[in-house]
């Protein structure tokens, strides 16, 4: 089972990213998935978590995610011990930041991928909404999900007026990370 933890702030769309990933692999790759937010009232700006669990067989585990394969951070001001907590050896940490990976010293045997998703989002969407480029970065870095599946998921889930721009943004972020790997 692959477990992904998303760190964001209320309003940044961390849970939407968790769901898009879920939609992509569940509907377009026929896997079993759970996607869920950190439970409770969401307040704009407050730190929030979201989770995606992916497996080839039915997932019956309903407990909290304790360890994860991938951690995605939508906003580097959220970086701290709670971000790296439970991140498995061999896992990947993807951070939206203007800094280099070296600015996030490793606390375990995992890979750090950085991307300035905010700049990409401002460039393409005109708004600093970073959930789609961060999803792209994860997909590029992890290599376990087909990017076409995510593009289809964007078609399924996002409103028509923002679809094309988000697909362009996805591709831009995906290519950028792939190019740097």
């Amino acid at each position: 089972m692959i477990e992904v933890r998303w760190h964001g702030r209320g309003g940044q769309g961390a849970f939407t990213a968790a769901r898009l990933l879920g939609q992509a692999v569940a509907i377009h790759e026929h896997k079993y998935v759970q996607a869920f937010p950190s439970f409770g009232p969401e307040r704009r700006g407050a730190p929030v978590l979201a989770f995606t669990r992916i497996d080839d067989k039915k997932i019956t585990d309903r407990s909290e995610v304790e360890t994860c394969d991938y951690v995605v951070v939508l906003d580097d001001t959220l970086y701290g011990d709670n971000v790296t907590k439970g991140l498995k050896d061999g896992g990947i940490l993807v951070i939206n930041t203007t800094q280099d990976a070296a600015a996030f010293p490793k606390k375990g045997d995992y890979t750090v991928i950085t991307i300035d998703a905010t700049a990409l989002a401002l460039d393409i969407l005109g708004r600093p909404i970073t959930n789609v480029p961060m999803l792209a970065a994860l997909v590029a870095a992890a290599g376990t999900v087909n990017s076409d599946s995510v593009l289809k998921a964007i078609d399924d889930q996002l409103a028509p007026r923002i679809r094309e721009k988000n697909k362009a943004l996805f591709t831009a972020a995906y290519d950028k990370v792939k190019g740097e790997l």
Binding site: G22, A26, I27, V33, A35, F36, F39, R62
Partner: peptide
């Protein structure tokens, strides 16, 4: 059905 654990969890 369990609040949040089910109500707010997406699955196939």
């Amino acid at each position: 059905l369990d609040g949040f654990v089910l109500t707010h969890t997406y699955e196939v």
